[in-house]
Nucleic acid binder design. Structure first.
Lengths: 173, 173
DNA sequence: GTGGTTTTTCAGAAATTCCTGAAAGATCGA
DNA sequence: TCGATCTTTCAGGAATTTCTGAAAAACCAC
């Protein structure tokens, strides 16, 4: 039995470590990704101290990243009767996770881009030189495309899981 | 005339600066994003020295990031008759840019994730404890979803622009 | 070959991001 | 109100990423 426990611990530790390393690529910091991995695979909600102990990190670090994950909506705070400490539990549904991440990425990556493109397209609207026209055109094309992507992202994110799969299956066939 | 030229220069400089700042969010470094912005809006191909002068950066920095952009496929090297220096020109078609970025992101973000999930699902396959089953299940669900996303990404990236728009329009209607 | 030009590399500096640890601030029961 | 417990903040330090500048390598015409 202890052997199976070992295998599980090993697999889980590996998942946490590797997922943390991947987090960097995804533009979130290592600790945040590790905490997310840890809680996604935790059978029960954990406290800040549990997380500190498991990942060997400081209280400040654990606290900041736990709250950040709560702000994203990837974790929930759980209050237990007769317990003063806060417990944290992860959203485990993959479609939910996906929509949360998609929304956040849209907010941080797509919307600022749109704002810039809008502004630059506007500022160059009335320039009549060939270079000016070319610039304006390029801004418009980018703006149109990014705006389009933004709308798509909204649509997909707000779909029910089943519907999205249905659509995707059609696309893949 | 000079007034229009000023307006264009101003708009373009702003685009380069802001796009550079955005690059950070997108997980590429500021300089790389700035160079990309500069060349996407350049009427003619530029040399390394042009880029150094425009962005006020060192030769090493300019060189490294130009080559990186060429490796991505976002820039092309242009050789001019009677010129020894290399000139660089950007891919300006938005759909092309999108597919290139999508492919690169898939390679850097999705594929490593799949590899990890695969490994962890495999390692926990035979564990029979309830915790082990739960872990294995979670890995499988993530694996399935990410694999699915990977295939979708491939499909969309390899579409012709028109087809993608057609599909998307249907989705948006 | 030689001299002049352009490209490439890379060690160390600069900038940015992330983490720690401790102190201050809340919360709560008695 | 007090003491105990838990949460939050943040200055300074550590780690990571990015950039510079100069030297080396590659290239080319003569």
């Amino acid at each position: 039995m202890s052997e199976e426990g070992d295998k599980l611990t090993k697999a889980r530790d590996e998942f946490v470590a590797q997922w943390g390393a991947l987090g960097t690529q995804w533009g979130i910091n290592r600790t945040m990704a590790q905490i997310h991995a840890l809680l996604m695979t935790a059978p029960l909600p954990l406290t800040t101290d549990d997380v500190m102990a498991e990942l060997q990190i400081s209280r400040g670090n654990a606290h900041t990243n736990l709250k950040e994950l709560v702000a994203w909506g990837l974790l929930r705070v759980v209050v237990k009767k007769g317990e003063r400490r806060e417990f944290f539990e992860a959203e485990k549904d993959v479609w939910q996770i996906f929509t949360i991440v998609a929304r956040e990425r849209k907010r941080r990556e797509i919307e600022p881009a749109l704002a810039i493109l809008n502004k630059c397209a506007e500022e160059s609207r009335e320039i009549t030189t060939p270079e000016g026209r070319a610039f304006h055109d390029q801004m418009r094309q980018l703006e149109d495309f990014v705006g389009f992507a933004s709308k798509m992202s909204d649509r997909v994110s707000s779909m029910k899981h089943g519907l999205a799969v249905q659509l995707a299956t059609k696309l893949l066939s």
